[in-house]
Design a binder for these strands. Structure first.
Lengths: 187, 187
DNA sequence: AGCGCCATGTAATGCGTTACATGATTAT
DNA sequence: ATAATCATGTAACGCATTACATGGCGCT
C-alpha cells in the first residue's frame, strides 16, 4: 500500500464531498459563499486538487447530464472516507496548535459528520490543555519582553496572545456545549 | 524602473533589518525564539529570501570577520527602506482584512519604527471600521445558517467569528492606548 | 446577434517546506 | 577526539495564485 497524503485543501474537499457529493463548480461556489475558510475559490486550486484526489483513488466522479449541461459529480470512495477518518482522528500535537490552527479547526468542523460527536469532544479535550500551555508561554514572553518593545510591536504581539486566549475560552465553551448536548441525547 | 514586490516574508525581513542589521543566522534565531510570527526558521526560506532582496537592491550585505567566523550582515538600502515604507503605508482593503490578517498585523508591528506613531494610529483607525463590517457579516451568516449546521461545524464557524470580534476589541483598545501615549508625549 | 453565466479546465509563476550538504569553531 | 553549535547555503518537491482558454446554454 502506498502512502497517500492529501493536502489540507484535499482533506477539506474530501470532507465536503462526504457531507454531500458535488461538482467542482459546486465546491467553488461553496468556497465563495461561506466564510468557512481562508481558501480561494479559484479553479486553479480546486480542479487540480480534485484531479489528484481522484488519481489517488480517494474520490470517484460520475457524469450527470440531467437535462442541463454536463456536470462531473464527485463522491468519496471507501478508501477516501477511511483516509479522511485517519486524518481527523490523528492525535493533536503541539505543532498543530502553534502553527497549524487552521488545519485543526478544519478537522474539528468536519468531525461530527464523519467521526461522530464522541470524537469531536475528544478532540476538544485534547486541544484545551495544549492551548493553555501555549497561552502561558506567549504570556510569559510578553511579560518578559514587552517593556523592551516599541508600542506597535508590543500591541501586535498582544493581539496574538489575545487571539489564543479567545480560542482557549472558546474551547472550554465548546466542551460544555458538547457535554450538554450529550446529556440531552442520552435522556 | 522595474516593479519590485517582495513577498510577506521579504517585507518582514526588510522590517527586521531596518530595526537592526543582522545576518541570516541572526534572523533565523529571531524567528525561532519569538512568537512574533507564523514563519518557520528554516534556512531554505530565509537565505533565498535574503538573496532575492539583495539582487533587487533592497538590502546590501557586508562581511564581518570580527575575530569569529565570517558573518554576512545585511542592512536595507535606501531603496529598500523606501519600498518598505510604501508597503507599510499602503491603504487597507477589505481583502486585507478578510484574507490577509497576518500581513496586516505584520505591517502594524513594524510600523512604529519605520513610519512613526502617527502612521500606526492611522492604520488602526482604518482597520477598525473594516473589521466591524466583517464581523457583522460573519455574525449575520452565523445567525442565518447556524441552525442548519451540525454542532462541530457551527462551533468551528463560531470560533472564527469570535476571533474577529476579539481583534475588533483589540483594535479599539490599541487606538485608546495610542491616544493616551500621544497625549503624554505632547504634554 | 450578442452578452453573460454555467462549467470545466490548463499554463506560468513563485513561494515555502523538508531535507540534505558543507565547513569552521568552541566546549568536554 | 568528537560532539555540539555557528553559519551558510542548495535541491527537490508540492502547492496555491493569477490569468488565460474553451464551449454550451439562456436571455433579450
Amino acid at each position: 500500500m502506498k502512502a497517500v497524503k492529501p493536502t489540507l485543501l484535499g482533506y477539506t474537499l474530501l470532507g465536503l464531498l462526504h457531507q454531500k457529493p458535488a461538482s467542482g463548480y459546486d465546491l467553488r461556489k461553496l468556497f465563495a459563499a461561506t466564510p468557512l475558510m481562508s481558501y480561494s475559490s479559484s479553479p486553479g486550486a480546486i480542479y487540480p486538487a480534485l484531479g489528484s484526489l481522484e488519481s489517488q483513488g480517494l474520490i470517484r466522479s460520475t457524469v450527470e447530464e440531467q437535462g442541463l449541461r454536463r456536470r462531473n459529480v464527485f463522491r468519496p470512495t471507501s478508501a477516501g472516507t477511511k483516509c479522511l477518518r485517519t486524518w481527523l482522528l490523528q492525535p493533536l500535537t503541539t505543532e498543530d496548535v502553534v502553527r497549524k490552527i487552521d488545519s485543526v479547526m478544519m478537522r474539528f468542523g468536519l468531525m461530527d459528520q464523519v467521526a461522530g460527536r464522541e470524537a469531536s469532544l475528544n478532540l476538544l479535550r485534547g486541544f484545551e490543555p495544549l492551548l493553555a500551555i501555549h497561552v502561558a508561554g506567549l504570556q510569559r514572553f510578553l511579560d518578559d519582553n514587552g517593556s523592551a518593545m516599541n508600542l506597535s510591536g508590543r500591541l501586535a504581539l498582544e493581539s496574538g496572545v489575545r487571539s489564543y486566549k479567545g480560542l482557549l475560552s472558546w474551547s472550554r465553551d465548546a466542551i460544555a456545549e458538547y457535554e450538554r448536548a450529550g446529556k440531552r441525547g442520552k435522556k
